[in-house]
Design a protein around this nucleic acid. Structure first.
Length: 354
DNA sequence: CGATTTTGACCTGCGC
DNA sequence: GCGCAGGTCAAAATCG
């Protein structure tokens, strides 16, 4: 995978001291070199959303988020409570693992939401009492499937026609988004799915480009964008859009070799405890949650104390992730934060830091 | 040789 | 209507 060994050095250099004066708006993006996660990093950060691998898509997460949004931080009780375990304050984390807040944009479209939920919790779609936003988690499973089906076809169609018929009167429908920030040296964190990069754009006011990825699985229109935080280049902001219509595809590359186990689990609505034990154990989200929702730290974590067999400790330290929070309110105020601008209300950031 | 990345061009939405 | 910025396409390059 290390196709470009120099790229990494370059990246690290940038992280340590990003050039201030690059001109993102210029015709040419900065000489930023994207590079894939070195094999040694494989899986390093794949665990925050391991659940997704097992059964949930981000749409599911979103529905949960909706609930969380509704209760928000002001509510001492939320869905999080249902699944988060009592957690002692996270042990002192390595500097690298510092959790950082992500901001969400008020400008988010209705369907464009930011999940404040740890992917770990995502799995609890069945726990999600409400979810009127986004196509997922329809009250009736049937409805959900229909919607999913419909969405899929729309997606495919859209993809196919992208450049041809263009412009129908129909407004492009955006899928709900789920964003989170990760402290990581690598941009593209391995989450178990296979992604193909289809674009890279310079981000205004940011020396760091934004990369666009699409799930390579046929029929799966999930996309994700990756960019570095302007504020702290060591933080990677990953935004998922859409819902996987399949299970993790790590097998295709023989990276982790878990697929067969995962295929056992349905694509929707299974409980966390139905996941393979090792996948349950690969979560660290409780830390993030704890960080963002100190008031919730009395609930259950399905995995908090389990070791992560397939996760290298060092990597874990390097890749702790902080999740974005609901975007229900607020507007962005931080300029030049690239995608972050769109995703995270700073108030959450502040709370997270407090 | 197939899969993936790179990258310039193009399209779209939005604010002015 | 225009310009800008975000998002996507697709051909070429690269990698394994």
């Amino acid at each position: 995978m290390d196709r470009n060994p120099h790229a990494r050095e370059e990246l690290i250099k940038r992280m340590k001291g990003p050039e201030e004066s690059s001109s993102p708006s210029g015709p040419k993006p900065p000489p930023f070199q994207y590079h894939e996660i070195p094999s040694t990093f494989s899986g390093a950060l794949s665990y925050p959303w391991e659940v997704e691998r097992g059964s949930l898509g981000f749409m599911d997460l979103l529905s949960i988020q909706d609930y969380a949004s509704a209760t928000t931080l002001s509510e001492p009780y939320s869905l999080l409570d249902l699944i988060q375990p009592p957690l002692p304050p996270p042990p002192e984390q390595p500097a690298r693992s510092e959790l950082l807040p992500v901001t969400a944009s008020s400008a988010l479209e209705p369907s464009e939401v930011v999940n404040n939920q740890s992917p770990t919790l995502a799995n609890s779609s069945s726990l999600s009492p409400s979810s009127d936003e986004g196509p997922t988690n329809k009250p009736a499973e049937q409805l959900g499937e229909e919607a999913e089906e419909e969405e899929r076809s729309i997606n495919e169609e859209r993809t196919r026609k992208q450049l041809k018929p263009k412009k129908t009167s129909q407004k492009k429908q955006r899928q709900p988004r789920f964003a989170f920030m990760t402290k990581s040296e690598v941009d593209h964190l391995d989450d178990g799915y296979r992604w193909r990069k289809y674009g890279q754009k310079a981000v205004k006011n940011s020396p760091f480009p934004r990369s666009y990825y699409r799930c390579t699985t046929a029929g799966c229109g999930v996309k994700k964008r990756i960019e570095r935080s302007l504020e702290d280049p060591s933080n990677v902001v990953t935004t998922y859009e859409g819902q996987h219509t399949h299970l993790i595809s790590i097998m295709s590359r023989g990276r982790l070799g878990l697929s067969s186990e995962y295929t056992t689990y349905g694509s929707r609505g299974i409980g966390f405890d139905q996941l393979p034990i090792h996948s349950q154990s690969n979560f660290h989200q409780h830390q993030y949650l704890h960080h963002f929702h100190p008031s919730l730290n009395t609930v259950t974590s399905l995995s908090a104390s389990l070791p992560s067999p397939s996760l290298n400790q060092d990597h874990r330290q390097k890749n702790l992730t902080s999740l974005t929070l609901p975007s229900s309110s607020s507007s962005l105020h931080r300029s030049g934060n690239g995608l972050l601008q769109d995703m995270v209300p700073s108030k959450y950031g502040r709370e997270a830091n407090e």
